[in-house]
């Protein structure tokens, strides 16, 4: 176990969750893991069980069956709940509905206050956290004066101040405009690279999933597809069946191949498509 824990931040085994009085399982026998330092995207249409899964990672929900270990801690153990939530921080969808305090820095301090951290240490940690998300100059501002992207960065800072091993973003970009989405994605990518924090993003934006190390597609509470973004998105037909899009360039590659043009199927970005076109014309 010790060894496993070193390389995996979250391990889910036959994880199942049923909402009270629901006929079907919202999450149905999911086995997966989040590795140390990994950037994982969980995709799926609305109602596919992806958000429920996220809430099982944070002990907000307790498994109906199966187990999930967060940094080696079993979420079914009541005594470990607060440890687990400190290890695996969560950012939610609606930026307005997760900020508690009336001043930015007070909100960042919220989790630390709950955990009884000394005031001096809180000061140090919130300053660091606000710096890490580039929000230092908004420390004294009222949250409702901020843009959506800024609010979400405050929420990330609040999680970051707890020094988590995993950050889970539960559709945290869904209500943002493109620049807000970009702000949030840049922030979590930087934290992932520089601080080595594992990131789990729950999303239905393909462009965001394309930047992940690994992608899991959920459908009906089960894992329908998994692999690197390339491996997943190349299966254009299957992805569409699951109610999702593919990145526009992957779609273009798919259509070109259907018309007999021999481009690589796993093109994700514009630059890769340019490369493919150059390769085509030089081989002609």
């Amino acid at each position: 176990m010790q060894n496993k824990q070193d390389e995996n931040r979250i391990i889910a085994s036959s994880l199942t969750y049923t909402y009270p009085e629901a006929a079907k399982n919202a999450v149905d026998g999911v086995t997966m893991r989040v590795k140390k330092g990994e950037f994982l995207a969980i995709l799926g249409h609305n109602g596919s069980g992806k958000s429920t899964l996220a809430k099982l990672f944070n002990a907000l929900y307790v498994p109906s069956a199966g187990t999930v270990w967060v940094c080696g801690l079993d979420t079914r153990d009541d005594d470990l709940v607060f440890d687990i939530r400190q290890h695996a921080g969560m950012v939610f969808q609606n930026p307005d509905n997760q900020i508690v305090a009336t001043v930015v820095e007070e909100d960042v301090a919220f989790g630390l206050e709950n955990n009884g951290v000394e005031p001096k240490e809180i000061r140090v940690r919130i300053d660091e956290a606000l710096k890490a998300v580039n929000m230092t100059k908004y420390a004294k501002k009222a949250p409702h004066m901020l843009s959506g992207g800024q609010k979400q960065r405050v929420a990330i800072a609040g999680v970051l101040a707890m020094k988590p091993d995993v950050i889970i973003l539960d559709e945290s970009t869904a209500m943002l405009d493109p620049s807000g989405r970009q702000e949030v994605m840049n922030t979590v990518h930087r934290l992932n690279k520089e601080e080595g924090i594992s990131v789990v993003i729950i999303t239905h934006y393909m462009a965001e999933a394309a930047t992940a190390d690994y992608v899991i597609v959920m459908d009906g509470g089960k894992i329908a597809m998994s692999g690197t973004p390339r491996e997943v998105f190349t299966q254009v037909q299957r992805v569409r069946e699951l109610g999702l899009d593919v990145p526009p360039m992957t779609d273009l590659a798919y259509m070109l191949r259907k018309n007999g043009v021999n481009v690589r199927a796993d093109v994700l970005t514009v630059d890769e498509m340019v490369e493919e076109v150059c390769r085509l014309s030089s081989s002609n």
Binding site: N58, L60, F82, R85, Q86, G89, M90, F92, N97, Q98, V100, E105, E106, A109, F110, G111, L112, E113, N114, N115, G116, V117, E118, P119, I122, R123, I126, G158, V159, M162
Partner: peptide, 16 residues
């Protein structure tokens, strides 16, 4: 969101 951030009432809570 408050629960996810370890909120557990006023006991043992410190303040910034």
């Amino acid at each position: 969101a408050m629960e996810a951030r370890c909120y557990r009432g006023g006991d043992h809570r410190t303040r910034l």
